[in-house]
């Protein structure tokens, strides 16, 4: 393996369960040191993809390489280079946090220091508590700690921050960035679009078993989907204009209103969440997700609609 080889390479990956098709030709690469997020609605195929790459499921057809190995044949040497944080588990948890981490650290040739890992996930106070006595969010942090204690080259994080409070999520993001800085490659799935935007170098969007878009956080959905929106109100009516020159548009609105401050004026740049939801909506309507926003930005005239209230 050389530096330029991707850590994960997937070509035309397919998975079916009898007649049901879960994955229908997915292709992507993850480069070394990259944080790559898979986004998509429930049942879209995110977990199927990640579990095939982790070696838990066998693919129906297509190619998959993880750290230079076919995950279907990955041995113990291969597993020693991976860190896996599964979606929530319900283990009995009859070990303390420190015992559990010490025990798992022993499986790996070059584990991280257990106390450093406990500190990194913020469980110093719970280190001596039985895992089953912890709250849901704290147990999730134990899951993450177990995923990283072996000093993995590639870390799989399947919805890692479910059940975290906002502060814990911020801390977690900080932690993930520190792993990336150390050169760890990361494959993340999450339902929190802000999380994906904060952490990812690139994202892939999966819907109905297909990868409908892939690219940098600032690229997916196409440039048109990111055209800023100017919103204001007159009486009960909300106006919305999408324009690449929002400041000029605001000046025009002020002038048209006779120099009076427009009510509730705001300029928003669509977040990853907006873009993502727009893509899924476009897909439902049978349009290409890349066309999202296109129709509206071409219309020079303001789009007007009644306010809900």
């Amino acid at each position: 393996m050389t530096a330029s080889d991707p850590v994960v390479s997937v070509r035309d990956l397919r998975k079916s369960y009898g007649p049901a098709v879960a994955l229908d030709g997915v292709s992507f690469d993850i480069e070394r040191g990259e944080v790559f997020s898979l986004l998509g609605p429930n049942g879209a195929g995110k977990s199927t993809t990640i579990e095939i790459l982790e070696g838990y499921r066998d693919r129906t057809s297509g190619e998959a390489t993880v750290l230079g190995q076919d995950p279907q044949r990955g041995g113990l040497d291969w597993k020693a280079r991976l860190g896996i944080v599964l979606q929530g588990t319900g283990e009995s948890g009859s070990a303390t946090v420190r015992e559990q981490l010490r025990h798992f650290a022993g499986f790996y040739p070059h584990p991280r220091d257990v106390d450093e890992v406990i500190a990194a996930v913020g469980l110093e106070k719970q280190a001596g508590s039985l895992v089953r006595k912890l709250s849901g969010g704290q147990r999730r942090r134990v899951d993450v700690a177990l995923g990283i204690v072996g000093r993995p080259e590639l870390l799989f994080l399947d919805e890692p921050t479910t059940g975290f409070d906002p502060e814990a999520r911020r801390d977690f993001w900080h932690l993930i960035r520190s792993f990336r800085d150390e050169g760890t490659s990361i494959l993340l799935t999450t339902h929190y679009l802000d999380e994906a935007a904060q952490l990812s170098d690139r994202v892939g969007v999966i819907a109905d078993g297909r990868l409908i878009d892939i690219g940098g956080v600032d690229e997916i959905g196409g440039a048109d989907a990111r055209v800023p929106i100017v919103r204001w109100r007159t009486g009960n009516t909300t106006h919305e204009v999408r324009t690449a020159t929002p400041a000029i548009e605001v000046a025009r609105i002020v002038e048209a209103g006779g120099g009076i401050e427009p009510e509730g004026i705001e300029i928003t740049r669509p977040s990853l969440e907006h873009v993502y939801l727009g893509m899924l909506a476009a897909l439902e309507q049978g349009r290409s997700p890349r066309e999202n926003g296109q129709a509206r930005v071409d219309a020079a005239a303001p789009v007007t609609r009644s306010a809900a209230s």
Binding site: E54, G55, Y56, L76, D77, K79, A80, L82, I84, L86, T89, G90, E91, S92, F104, F107, Y108, L146, G150
Partner: peptide
């Protein structure tokens, strides 16, 4: 409960 699944993802023989 996921114990075996977790172990399966580690290099434990």
């Amino acid at each position: 409960d996921g114990t075996l699944k977790r172990l399966a993802g580690t290099p434990l023989p």
